[in-house]
Design a protein around this nucleic acid. Structure first.
Length: 546
RNA sequence: GGGCGCAUGGCCUAGCCUGGAUAGGGCAACAGCCUCCUAAGCUGUAGAUCAGGGGUCCAAAUCCCCUUGCGCCCGCCA
């Protein structure tokens, strides 16, 4: 089986044999000039290049069985791949293996750590960007053939968490998300005028690190309730974890202490720190309690035991932290695992930054709920023929897919200003736009009879374009996986759906002659399969009707 | 003050790493398309000094430098 990337490589080698070029000079063209373009400015300019050699190269490329034609135009050789070849590759893979492509297989184990939000309150949409990016990366790498583990590092021993605990002790009330959150916001307000609170928190940190069972048990219970809230909201949009790794476990089994002893620490007022180029990094406070950096080193060494490739999804505020961490792990501790940090910019509201402590947040829960209400309204309008239960189920799938799509479609380094009207737009460039085409494709197949075994390749232009868009899927999958760019899948999906919509408008399936019918049914089946495959990578669930 | 990131039609966004053929989409606007597989769709019109300036190159949205604006960081917080 030759995928697009194999063809590209083969053509590169043909050209490179005659004249040294860069691999980047052979690329997927999406401007309509060709399928694969070879840039030959360098050859034309060269004294030993020129027309003769170009003709020879064009001749060799034309000779390949999958090449429709190759022509030199201006500074390019435009290569067209046979659509029949593309169609056969896609259809055979799907009919024989049930999936396209089926060739990816990687030996390495990958740890994807994402979310890892302090369980001090419900997840807001800024934090949810972390989860959505992380889960998409997990899905893409898994599809690409890696053995992946999703990990959440639960901070139950930092100052914020102890503050939450201290607030609970001071103000009481039930251990519920609402009450704990109210207490948490209250303690930060009162801390401003009452310095004794700070002291109380410090004492509790010390008690916690010294495994005072009273503090430990209550705090784990509090963290558990908060974490359950976060986890169940995430589960609603299809995000789950393989492991919840608790900071306090690393504290209790001595691994944090071991790390601190291993490093060449210096002291200042009893606080231990290390020096890396340009800065001091404190690992402990003067009272001996540990700091996040120390615990994070221990955590990364823990992850490194089971994964060759460690991926952290982090907010842009963690860039310096991660850079220092990377230095310590690789330079000082000689860790050889591959480590990738993915950064994303924040989501802000039109009214400004979000803050759990101050309470001005849009939670993921709010967003999904409101998106669901909006989706339900539209489904009720469009499909009064369906049962209420069906309409609710459809609205739920639309809402969860739409929320994920609206966040993943923007590349990670770009800041997002959240606007309700944009979040609730279900037209083109949204998950419902993608899902709708799946429902239409399904509808055709439901009405259709089984086609014959034979089909021909006399495709209309819109069919041929759709076939190319499907054939090229592995190429985008590869880029998204290796460059860690889940947003590429969103871009790909939209272009694929647009090609299907063109096909749908221009080409009848049902009621055509047997050979055409047989081919088009196969195309629609393949499309449906590839669409839900690619959609699932970014958490879009397909519906058979909507 | 130092560091990192971002800037593309009224609005949102792709392309930038790896420089090359008319800068792709979408929203909003305007004009059309349902006796035909779901109109959450499709077709067309209009709209862009690719933040500004300089440089490198046969060729710059893309690479380099400067400037401006915005976001983030510079804790014995995480």
């Amino acid at each position: 089986m030759l995928l697009f990337q194999d063809l590209r490589k083969a053509i590169y080698e043909i050209v490179n044999e005659k004249f040294r070029i860069s691999e980047n000079d052979v690329y997927l063209d999406d401007t309509g000039h060709s399928d694969i373009t070879v840039r030959i400015f360098r050859i034309l300019k060269s004294p030993d290049g020129g027309e003769g050699i170009i003709d020879e190269i064009v001749g060799s490329i034309s000779g390949k069985e999958y090449v429709e034609k190759a022509v030199s135009e201006g500074g390019y050789i435009n290569v067209w791949i046979k659509r029949s070849y593309m169609l056969r590759e896609v259809i055979e893979s799907i009919e024989k293996k049930g999936i396209y492509p089926d060739v990816f297989q990687e030996a390495d184990r990958v740890s994807v750590e994402h979310t890892s939000a302090n369980p001090t309150g419900p997840l807001h949409i800024g934090r949810a960007r972390n989860s959505i990016i992380g889960d998409s990366v997990y899905r893409i790498l898994t599809r690409y053939g890696y053995r992946t583990t999703r990990q959440y590092f639960v901070n139950d021993s930092g100052k914020q968490m102890i503050s939450l605990y201290t607030a609970y002790i001071r103000y009481g009330g039930p251990i519920t998300i609402d009450n704990l959150l109210e207490n948490y916001q209250r303690i930060y307000r009162e801390m401003e005028t009452d310095p004794s609170i700070e002291k109380e928190i410090e004492r509790n940190i010390e008690r916690y690190e010294n495994a005072d069972p009273e503090v430990y048990e209550t705090l784990r219970k509090i963290a558990g309730v908060m974490l359950d809230g976060i986890a169940s909201t995430l589960k609603r949009i299809g995000i789950e974890f393989d492991e919840f790794d608790w900071e306090s476990d690393l504290l209790r089994d001595g691994s944090v202490k071991k790390i601190i002893d291993m490093l060449q620490t210096k002291e200042e007022d009893g606080a231990r720190y290390i020096e890396i180029p340009g800065k001091k990094i404190f690992l402990t406070r003067k009272d001996g309690t540990t700091l996040y950096f120390a615990r994070d080193i221990a955590y990364h060494l823990f992850k490194a035991e089971n994964s060759e490739w460690i991926i952290d999804v982090l907010g842009e505020d963690h860039k310096d932290h991660a850079k220092s961490l990377d230095h310590v792990l690789k330079q000082m501790l000689k860790l050889e695992n591959r480590i990738s940090f993915m950064y994303y910019s924040f989501i802000t509201l039109e009214t400004g930054k979000m803050s759990t402590r101050r309470g001005n947040i849009v939670t993921l829960q709010d967003l999904v709920d409101r998106t669901y209400e909006e989706a339900l309204k539209i489904v009720n309008e469009k499909r009064p023929d369906l049962s209420e239960d069906d309409r609710r189920k459809i609205a739920e799938v639309i809402a969860t897919s739409a929320v994920r799509y609206s966040i993943i479609r923007v590349s990670a380094p770009k800041a997002i200003t959240f606007r309700w009207d944009e979040a609730l737009n279900f037209e083109a460039n949204s998950a419902p736009f993608i899902m709708y085409s799946h429902a239409r494709a399904t509808s055709i197949l439901e009405k259709a009879e089984e086609p014959g075994d034979k089909y021909d390749f006399n495709m209309d232009p819109e069919e041929a374009e759709l076939v190319k868009a499907m054939y090229v899927y592995p190429y985008y999958l590869m880029d998204a996986a290796l460059d860690l760019k889940p947003d590429l899948i969103a871009t790909y999906l939209i272009s694929l759906v647009q090609k299907f919509n063109d096909f749908y408008g221009a080409c009848r399936v049902i009621g055509t002659d047997p050979m055409t019918y047989s081919r088009r049914i196969r195309i629609v089946k393949a499309y449906r399969q590839i669409l839900s495959d690619a959609g699932s990578l970014i958490g879009i669930r397909m519906l058979d009707q909507m």
